[in-house]
């Protein structure tokens, strides 16, 4: 199976947010970047499928040059090669279109995504790419079985209070969720090998974005809360406040 994994480089989840001088982008000057944590499940799953059924895993990232660092980590985990759709600063174009246009040229059987990128928290790119490529798609997948000979997949997706079991033909798009697997840590051999694996850099198709950020705002600080008395003594006070002041019980 030829598998493409869409991976984004994002600020790590401990990042303290600073808004840039323009008021509508993030100040990324002192940010530590990582592989989008949800995408690690996609990378791991792709490698496992390759190990089981053969084929090749290609990492696809749209982002600036600094993303190369994390692309190499995915290669060190076991992906075979990578494509970086290189952008300068904030990409003003349509990300899903740029990814879809690239994937069209790659002849893949399966395209894997994470559930969401933890910087923008949109959870929409996999579905959009699937639509642009006219492929079936299952998102939030916690279990995946592939039958490459029959060209079919069985996927379990998480829904409120349960799961849906979905059957679909290849080629397909899958969005992965925590629980699908335990992503491996790259070993030394993998890290050495990754340095020599092919990384193609090219310009993304740049179609104007359909949305525009007009500003970023920090959440209003929560007023310092009330501390009630410690231990059991605090219980009657807490119950009274929730009932009379907050009116939530």
């Amino acid at each position: 199976m030829n598998i493409v994994v869409c991976m984004k480089q994002v600020p790590d989840s401990e990042t303290r947010v600073k808004i840039g001088a323009d008021g509508k982008s993030l100040d990324l000057s002192s940010v530590n970047f990582v592989i989008n944590p949800h995408d690690e499940f996609a990378i791991e799953e792709a490698i496992r499928l390759k190990e089981k059924h053969g084929g090749e895993v290609t990492v696809l990232t749209l982002g600036p040059d600094r993303a190369e660092n994390d692309i190499r980590k995915a290669l060190a985990m076991g992906a075979d090669k990578a494509v970086l759709l290189r952008t300068e600063g904030d990409f003003q174009g349509d990300v899903a279109i740029a990814l879809a246009e690239q994937i069209k040229t790659m002849g893949s059987d399966l395209v894997l995504f994470g559930k969401q990128a933890i910087d923008e928290d949109s959870s929409q790119t996999a579905q959009l790419v699937a639509e642009y490529l006219d492929l079936p798609c299952v998102t939030v997948v916690v279990k995946l079985d592939a039958d490459p000979a029959a060209k079919r997949l069985t996927a379990e997706r998480e829904i409120e209070g349960g799961t849906e079991v979905v059957e679909l033909p290849l080629p397909a798009v899958i969005g992965t969720q925590k629980g699908l697997n335990e992503p491996r840590l790259p070993n030394l051999k993998g890290i050495m090998a990754a340095k020599k694996k092919p990384l193609e850099k090219k310009e993304p198709v740049n179609q104007a974005s359909k949305v525009e950020t007009v500003g970023l705002e920090l959440p209003p600080p929560r007023a310092a809360g009330k501390m009630v008395s410690q231990g059991l003594d605090g219980v009657p006070e807490l119950v009274r406040l929730l009932h009379e002041e907050a009116k939530v019980i």
Partner: peptide, 20 residues
Amino acid sequence: LQITRPMMAGKVFQKMIIKT
């Protein structure tokens, strides 16, 4: 439509418009 949505796990809010 002027839209507000949380980003970065609610650490910042994006104000946005849709152009289509």
